[in-house]
């Protein structure tokens, strides 16, 4: 679903307090690596997404923007550009299925069908109704010699079959 489909918010988001104390040191260290605060956006957003349950809400977006002294819209521009960021709730488990040529030749289309059926959704990019899964179509994950590849919660799985994918997803709480 594109960002355009989201309904317009009624009021500006209240910025979340950022960074939370658990991330303060890590974020400050990241900022110190670069000559500009803006350059810290991607690594800080990675930390923020991990800390705030796998997605960046408008409130977190505004909090990160204030911390890095950039506009909210700059952060939104990054979130909608980079495939690894989520702008809506992402389920308790994120399943990435590689769809690019090598994995497709080795059976990725079947894996995608299996993952969607297991999640109980009809397309990629939406949280499953029970909040358990978010299945994402990803472009080449760089595991071509052990294709087809799937990531579950950031961990790679290789030479995946529909059976092994079912087992992997069954093992997710």
């Amino acid at each position: 679903m594109s960002a355009f489909e989201a309904s317009a918010p009624a009021a500006p988001p209240v910025p979340a307090s950022f960074p939370p104390k658990e991330l303060r040191q890590a974020c400050d260290e990241i900022v110190a690596r670069y000559p500009t605060r803006m350059a810290a956006c991607l690594p800080v957003l990675h930390l923020a997404q991990k800390h705030f349950g796998g997605w960046i809400s408008p409130e977190v977006e505004a909090g990160v923007a204030a911390y890095l002294e950039v506009s909210d819209s700059h952060i939104r521009g990054l979130l909608t550009f980079y495939a690894m960021f989520n702008t809506r709730p992402s389920g308790r488990h994120e399943v990435w299925v590689c769809r690019t040529l090598t994995c497709w030749l080795r059976g990725a289309a079947g894996l995608r069908r299996t993952a969607l059926a297991k999640a109980g959704v009809d397309r990629c990019g939406v949280e499953s109704p029970d909040g358990r899964f978010l299945v994402k179509d990803m472009e080449c994950l760089g595991l071509c010699e052990v294709a087809p590849a799937v990531f579950i919660d950031g961990a790679p799985h290789t030479e995946v079959t529909t059976e092994s994918l079912e087992q992997l997803m069954d093992a997710c709480e």
Partner: peptide
């Protein structure tokens, strides 16, 4: 030297 992580963009 620092590692800078990308976020999914060819």
């Amino acid at each position: 030297a620092h590692v800078h992580p990308g976020a999914g963009a060819y």
